[in-house]
């Protein structure tokens, strides 16, 4: 392990202090006031009811959570889930070959390829989404080109559809998938892959029996990193989906700013957060189990 392994230092002998240093107070106070208190407010309001002119009436009921079971809203939830799952799957499909290629490229090329993956990730999200509006709209570049080439007679209406949202989400979150996958493949011992090949495994079996199980932690990490923001996406469905293809994020915004039903909006956001945290928890469980495994299964391997 690294020299910073606490077990190798003198400070190990100092007793565990009961209290953190005072230095921890300011950041905790800031987050407490401007993150946790607002979060609790949302929770509290989700049990209240909407006042006559917007605003909040402080009653206690589960009415908002019941309303959510209305097929109208359930559909939006299901669409969000379906889009998030599809986005994650497409990102994995597109990202795995890229990550594998980068991790197996010569070292000096790896840096360049990684940079190329990271640049879009650092580019303003609105700009990247706008680019697809520009391409996909009825008079947009894609239709102009396709019609110019005589491939289609009438423009294809893609913008403001689920397809457009899916394209935008995959485009926006692909780098989130590639980076953890790259790290996982990079850690994968090349000779282990060769060993499978040498032991009569055809390409598909090499992938399924060796590469996939050994890169699974990276796959899970990448999927979580793509799934969470996709599920709560706001900009992409707002710009590429329009009113017809709302996702949960848009519904929340709609309830808060248009319908001015804060209690209902709060209930929706709480369920969304619950879903996300649930996913996170599952991931942490898997991760912890894996790390427990790792101390056994990799410790020896690393030392060779």
């Amino acid at each position: 392990m690294s020299p910073s392994d606490p077990s190798t230092t003198l400070s190990d002998h100092s007793p565990i202090s009961r209290r953190p240093t005072w230095l921890l107070l300011p950041p905790l106070a800031w987050l407490g006031a401007f993150f946790f208190v607002p979060l609790l407010l949302v929770l509290a309001i989700s049990f209240a009811t909407r006042g006559t002119y917007g605003g909040v009436e402080w009653t206690f009921s589960f009415a908002n959570y019941v309303t959510m079971l209305d097929p109208l809203y359930l559909k939006i939830y299901l669409r969000s889930l379906a889009l998030a799952v599809a986005t994650t799957a497409l990102c994995l499909l597109l990202g795995f070959p890229l990550a594998y290629y980068i991790a197996r490229a010569p070292a000096r090329w790896q840096g360049i390829w990684l940079l190329l993956v990271i640049i879009p990730f650092w580019t303003n999200f609105l700009v990247r989404t706008y680019a697809w509006m520009f391409i996909l709209r009825t008079e947009g570049l894609m239709n102009t080109l396709l019609m110019g080439m005589g491939l289609i007679e009438h423009p294809i209406e893609i913008l403001y559809s689920d397809t457009a949202v899916l394209i935008g989400l995959v485009y926006g979150y692909l780098p989130f998938m590639v980076l953890p996958l790259y790290a996982a493949v990079e850690r994968l011992d090349r000779s282990v892959v060769e060993a499978a090949w040498d032991l009569y495994a055809p390409a598909w079996a090499v992938f399924r029996r060796v590469i996939w199980p050994l890169t699974k932690p990276g796959v899970i990490a990448g999927c979580i990193l793509v799934f969470i923001p996709s599920l709560g996406a706001f900009i992409t469905p707002d710009l590429l989906g329009g009113a017809r293809t709302m996702m949960v994020g848009n519904l929340i915004q709609h309830e808060y700013l248009v319908a001015r039903d804060w209690p209902f909006g709060s209930a929706i956001s709480f369920v969304l957060m619950g879903l996300v945290l649930l996913g996170m928890l599952v991931y942490l469980k898997v991760e912890r189990a894996r790390q427990g495994d790792e101390t056994v299964s990799w410790a020896g391997g690393d030392r060779q």
Partner: peptide, 16 residues
């Protein structure tokens, strides 16, 4: 704050 949906953080702050 890194894992919860941004929309959620936005509305929570606004409410607050």
């Amino acid at each position: 704050p890194l894992v919860i949906p941004e929309v959620m953080m936005g509305v929570a702050l606004m409410l607050f």
